[in-house]
Design a binder for these strands. Structure first.
Lengths: 202, 202, 202, 202
DNA sequence: TATGAATGAGGCTTCATTCAT
DNA sequence: AATGAATGAAGCCTCATTCAT
């Protein structure tokens, strides 16, 4: 957290600061969660990574869980429209798959921030409303693609889970090596080849 | 002051008790983590779910993280030999894939315990040594399969990640619906069809 | 920059508002003290029961204690003149006693407000200046009555304490059952009979 | 609170200390409540008046309210048997009244501890089970006395309230001047004279 | 080894109060 | 005056851990 000087004399800062404090807290929380993991992090840790007073935290969030969800939602909110767009623009099965994967992995590569101090031995996923909405959206788009004939009539729910599983797992590699195209190529080829072999719905 | 053992069974009892205490703590921890999630659980919560005294906990574990890893390792230790066996017994690519997935999903279905009190909106994965060893083992087995000609010469590391991603994600569905065969069929078909399409190593 | 009053009514409105805010706070405090007890109540609770901002509270009161005293004083201020009048109008010892008790119990019955949310197992008495003045007034009136021959020359201070003790304790019953006349009859008879037996001052 | 040295070397002290800590806390609480009043006192204040660690408080009590009730109960537990005995030993109405008042006022005089630092402007009464039991006992004894003919058939409940009111109010004077006999004489005479004049039950 | 009371650090949260607007 | 976000002291309480028994 860069020191935002807290001196009272910079009164002009206050009016900006108002709801920008929220951003300050979110940034600090992102940092703290990355450094020590969500489970170990405390509200105090977040506050300490901030020039703000402890009480101020509670003007914005009720708990670290609420901050976490806000972060998640920010991410989901940022990535969802991009994914949507990529999928809707697809004119072929290959474009649907490669477009989705490439968009996702590119986003992951972008987010590669300060590498964790702790080698980060735990991963965590909180299915906030926004994240769940992202899943639902994926599934809906798959259904649309099936209707359009871009995909065979497979179980969209399960296919969505498989896509997400591969995406999240390969994302770990992208975080490490930043190679978006390799991951995209692999995942696209896998599903391009595999989808035809899937059992179709009755 | 050597022990004149009060009775032979007593010393036997003591050893048993020692092992039992460890199991008691692990069982309580499994329960507690399921009920309130890992992040919220405390050592005290685990002790309270036990007839033991607080100090006793520290004769067996140093922290809840250590308990968590022990649980993880127990799971990994239980599943790894089964997976190994399934993979080594495979005489065809189809057997390799379906055997591995079926073994994994069957294990997950077995473990489906009392559903969490908290709707459990977060999922954790702690890459303890045992879990990482499981990954390494998978990768080694893939390499062996490639050498045997059961698989084409793809990047085993990435394929392992994709297999794990699909396995873990579909595991959530198996936890929910218990349908091992459906998940096995889907995953096997996907990879059976997809593997041929994958880029091969140079 | 003298005020060109935007309208005459506005300045009138402002003064009214000022008084109204004080009343608003007192009313909220009465409510809050009744609902959660004095000890548990906080300034914030009082503010929250108000449409006003937190800072505004401090334009009127310094603390919850000050609010409490103001409430007390309001009560004492309301009851004292009535008690005074009742006692001064008394032409006989019976009238002196019954008039005083009846006035007091009638006031208590009037105040019986919404019953406390908390079963209220604690009772407070804060001897604010106004309350102490009420005591002094009672004592002075007793001295006057002694001088007038309405009462024998007993220790007015102690008699005042005994009267107050019975009055406050029976008040609890009146709060519960609202039976002003029963309490008045009992207390009057007790003192009417007892006063003659009291030791007289030397 | 006298400093009980907290050094670890005095290991012999520990076993005594075990449940004697409870007494330490109660003594500190008595002191603190007397000095700053119940409403203003905090758990921390009580702990600070103790050589104990903060966590230890919670091994014995859950809140200051619980401490207060324990104190109240101690008092009620100490005074009730004495009052009971005094009343049961009474062979005449005069003995019944004077015995009860004298016992109560003597107890109050005994308890006169360190005078409050703050002039103590608030009084507080928490009707814990023990206190309520004391009231019930008084009432039962009055009924017994009525049955024995020591008292006329008045409303025992209301008479009990009147007796308590006078007793508690005169107790304030006894706390101040310590004159047990004066208070006893006054109260006894008042009720001795007044009881005959009370309305009798139908 | 097991016990469980004691410890005190430290997390969580609210509070009274200030002060720039 | 009124507002209400910010402050940070401080209360509440639990926690992990120790250690005498």
């Amino acid at each position: 957290m860069d020191a935002l000087p807290k001196s009272r004399t910079q009164s002009g800062r206050r009016e900006q600061t108002k709801l920008q404090n929220r951003e300050t807290i979110l940034a600090a929380a992102r940092q703290v969660f990355a450094e020590m993991g969500f489970a170990a992090a405390t509200v105090r840790d977040i506050i300490r990574a901030t020039p703000l007073a402890s009480g101020t935290f509670y003007n914005y969030f009720k708990s670290k869980e609420e901050v976490y969800q806000a972060l998640r939602d920010d991410v989901a909110l940022a990535i969802r429209p991009r994914l949507r767009e990529a999928r809707l623009a697809a004119a072929s099965r290959e474009e649907l798959l490669s477009g989705g994967f490439r968009t996702f992995f590119a986003f992951v590569a972008e987010q590669r921030g300060a590498p964790s101090a702790v080698p980060e031995t735990s991963r965590f996923r909180m299915d906030s409303p926004e994240v769940l909405a992202g899943f639902a959206e994926l599934r809906a788009d798959l259904d649309t693609a099936i209707a359009q004939g871009l995909l065979p009539p497979v179980d969209a729910q399960v296919l969505a889970a498989a896509l997400a599983g591969v995406a999240f797992e390969l994302a770990e590699r992208v975080k490490a090596d930043g190679d978006v195209e390799a991951a995209t190529g692999f995942a696209t080829a896998l599903f391009l080849g595999g989808i035809n072999a899937l059992p179709v719905r009755d």
